[in-house]
Design a protein around this nucleic acid. Structure first.
Length: 266
DNA sequence: ATGGCCCGTAGAACGGGA
């Protein structure tokens, strides 16, 4: 079973690339962020024709998330939840569903704009609410190891580079948004609660990133950040056999600024 | 030193992204 996350920066523009990518890779569950589409305009029919069920939550212009599920392998998602029950939010950044016995949470974390800004405060509050919602679900397992609970995967654009090795120029980015200590602290809270960073469970190429600025020839210079992640709880991490970033779509004409991340579960 | 691109909404610039 392959699960993946990709910030497409407008699904309207990127739909042909998404369809090509799915045709070329055996992806069972694909989490999308920044669809930038209201639900009425979501290309459900095109995806259905390509063999994928979709659940989605969008708004005009900004944000928007979706989970695509391959019909002939994992089937339709169930138990769909839009948003965080603990955090009233106008912005469509969160959708979760049960897919083939796995609880999949697809998240588009706030960017935060600049440390100290209103958007940064919103980001920290959003992060705290996510932690408060998700981590008790893991603690339930710790208290009663045999309690019936589905394995849980949290995928998405976290807008957090967890460590210096996830940043092309850690000195220039020190303390900046995406790299600031309060953000990294919250990422570590998720790890402490029992999630593992799939990507770091394996030997990886040095300077591996998932986002590159459109400006300044960012991709050509590999001046990027690793901000898109697949976190797995203990139950799903036991099944993890591989994780990689697919840089190929970033090389296409008119690419998203993010590359997809793929994890393989046995 | 600053910003350099891309997208959506527009129907010109501008907000937002990271």
């Amino acid at each position: 079973m392959q699960i993946a996350t990709w910030n497409v920066n407008s699904l309207k523009v990127r739909l042909p690339q998404v369809l090509d990518w799915l045709a070329a890779h055996p992806i069972d569950v694909l989490c999308l962020q920044e669809t930038k589409l209201i639900d009425e305009r979501f290309p459900a029919a095109e995806l259905e024709a390509a063999g994928y069920h979709a659940v989605f939550s969008g708004q005009p212009t900004y944000n928007g998330v979706a989970i695509l599920c391959r019909r002939d392998t994992v089937g339709a998602p169930t138990e769909v939840v839009i948003g965080n029950p603990l955090f009233a939010d106008e912005q469509k950044r969160l959708i979760s569903a049960t897919v083939a016995g796995l609880q999949v949470v697809c998240a588009y974390f706030p960017n935060g704009q600049a440390v100290g800004s209103d958007k940064y405060d919103y980001k920290l509050r959003w992060l705290d609410a996510l932690i408060n919602w998700i981590t008790p679900q893991l603690e339930a397992e710790a208290l009663t190891p045999h309690a019936a609970r589905l394995p849980l995967a949290l995928l998405g654009d976290f807008n957090i580079a967890p460590a210096a090795e996830d940043v092309h120029d850690p000195v220039a980015w020190a303390g900046q948004v995406l790299c600031s200590e309060p953000e990294r602290e919250r990422f570590q809270k998720l790890i402490s609660a029992g999630f593992v960073d799939s990507f770091r469970q394996f030997q990886q190429p040095e300077r591996s990133f998932s986002w590159w600025d459109y400006r300044q020839l960012g991709f050509r210079r590999n001046a990027g950040l690793r901000i898109d992640h697949i976190l797995l709880d203990r139950l799903s991490a036991q099944r993890l056999t591989a994780c990689r970033i697919d840089r190929e779509p970033r090389k296409l004409q008119q690419p998203s600024d993010h590359a997809p991340v793929i994890a393989e579960l046995a």
